[in-house]
Amino acid sequence: MEANEKSILSVKELCLWYGNHQALKNINIDIPKNSITALIGPSGCGKSTFLKTLDRMNDLIPDVKITGSVEYKGEDIFAPGVDVSELRRQIGMVFQKPNPFPMSIYDNIAYGPRTHGIRNRAKLDDIVEKSLRGAAIWDEVKDRLRKNALGLSGGQQQRLCIARALAVEPDVLLMDEPTSALDPISTSKIEELAMQLKEQYTIVIVTHNMQQAVRISDNTAFFLLGELVEYGKTEEMFSQPTDKRTEDYITGRFG
């Protein structure tokens, strides 16, 4: 896929090492705006590492070396002047295990906006409601905003985490296997939500579940041993994979 104006993230020649181990090898990928991109591949293939690189969450791990470039809206995110805090505000992340803070539901959502300097009570109330509505969980929690978030079910917690990510008004949402810890009903709720959210946001989702990739994504990238093997429209890739390894993987010969 050629880079065009509509791509919001553009990755070129990205390599990443943990110490001596090379976890990502020459990744080139353009992620289009307002779409869902699924990253698939067997465990340890580098897809989560790649996802974390996009909002520089790998920065804190000692011994990580990164070469190549990731351009977000045309700017290199590794450039010296870049403010990581602002980058992470614009590129949000939802984790594999639901991880609400041990605080009230309200404080969970308000955490991000407060961090970025919003103190006005009415404004915060507004953001909390909007974010919870955006994550399709408002009706379930509107009467218990002051209750501890850890009292919610796993699926609700994950939607709360999505709401928390939305509260800082990001452009991109990175999701690292957001449904792997959930039951099928909660999973389908999250999938529905993701498809609604792509109207406004760009979503990159790591998934182990190929049906999920087919159901929700527009484009799919297949990673294997740190390499990007194939990247293209989801329908095309699952019907006519160009690479033998992709075919073997999606037909379940390994993984």
Partner: peptide, 17 residues
Amino acid sequence: PKEYEDASLALGATEVE
């Protein structure tokens, strides 16, 4: 749990925050 800290960092909070 490290998960709490990851979530906060991913929202753009600094390490100290």
